[in-house]
């Protein structure tokens, strides 16, 4: 009976998200808007003149050589890094020094990291219920039902009572995705979610991400998985030296790159 309730709770959540996505799209309000964003690490100009609009429900893949600022870009979206010039507006809220508003944004923006960053002292289930209970003030029972539902969706419900240290990398990353989804975010950010994984685990994580993309989630993924980009991305963004060099729909981007650096990068990455 409890899974039933959990399932209906998840269905309700998804309906709510779909509704919100429609509402935002109708108002023509972008999920994420970056206007003329610059950032420096000390003297080092790491992000330069970034202008990016992500529509609700849109799936963006960001790629580019190492050190080009991809992580920095996506970490600016939930203010893990602070930008120094320009404006970033997420879900209608502008990022500023107001900590309350930042937490408000973070509640709606899920993030999946390269190294999973699960909490090792908590079980898988506790990892998943922590934020709903403490941030969303959801009753524990309900949070657990929803967590089990998402763990089932990423195909590891049987691991719920283990600790992260007892799981494989691929399983941990799927837990990390489920953990973010438990907050029913409007936007999901992925920072190279598969690059710390062995080849055979990459697919199980990508499958979950494809599934998520098809459910209509707004996603920004930093990844070099070009198969994934082709399959689900609405747009591929290529970055180099802290700037957006080229962006296009995947088919055009891969078949017909315009910029020299894009061509070079693609020739290296696609062999």
């Amino acid at each position: 009976m409890s899974t039933q309730e959990g399932a209906s709770a998840v269905a309700e959540e998804q309906a709510r998200i779909a509704e919100e996505v429609r509402a935002m799209a109708a108002k023509d309000q972008p999920a994420i808007e970056m206007i003329d964003v610059h950032k420096w690490y000390g003297e080092f100009h790491v992000l330069r003149d970034i202008n990016l609009r992500v529509k609700a429900g849109e799936r963006i893949v960001v790629c580019g050589p190492s050190g080009s600022g991809k992580s920095t870009l996506i970490r600016c979206i939930n203010r893990l890094e602070e930008h120094q010039r320009g404006r970033i507006i997420v879900d209608g809220i502008e990022l500023s020094d107001d900590l309350k508003r930042i937490d408000e944004i973070r509640r709606e923006v899920g993030m999946v990291f390269q190294h999973f960053n699960l909490f090792p002292h908590l079980t898988i289930l506790e990892n998943c219920t922590l934020a709903p209970v403490w941030v969303r003030k959801m009753p524990k029972r309900q949070a657990e039902e929803i967590a089990m539902e998402y763990l089932t969706r990423v195909k590891i419900p049987e691991q719920a009572h283990k600790y992260p240290g007892q799981l494989s990398g691929g399983q941990q990353q799927r837990v990390a995705i489920a953990r973010s989804l438990c907050m029913s975010p409007k936007i999901m950010l992925f920072d190279e979610p598969t690059s710390a994984l062995d080849p055979e685990m990459i697919k199980e994580v990508l499958d979950v991400m494809v599934d998520l993309a098809q459910s209509g989630m707004t996603m920004v993924c930093v990844t070099h998985e070009m198969g994934f980009a082709r399959q689900v991305a609405d747009r591929v963004i290529f970055m180099d030296a802290g700037q957006v060099i080229e962006q296009n729909v995947p088919a055009e981007f891969f078949e017909n790159p315009q910029h020299e650096r894009t061509k070079l990068f693609l020739s290296q990455i696609l062999h």
Partner: peptide, 26 residues
């Protein structure tokens, strides 16, 4: 590790809940 702070912050946990729930226990 810094990742623990970041994961907690990315969920919208404030400073004290983050310390109490994530950082201090470890």
């Amino acid at each position: 590790p810094k990742g623990q702070y970041e994961a907690a912050a990315a969920m919208g946990l404030g400073y004290w809940p983050m310390m109490y729930l994530i950082i201090l226990p470890q």
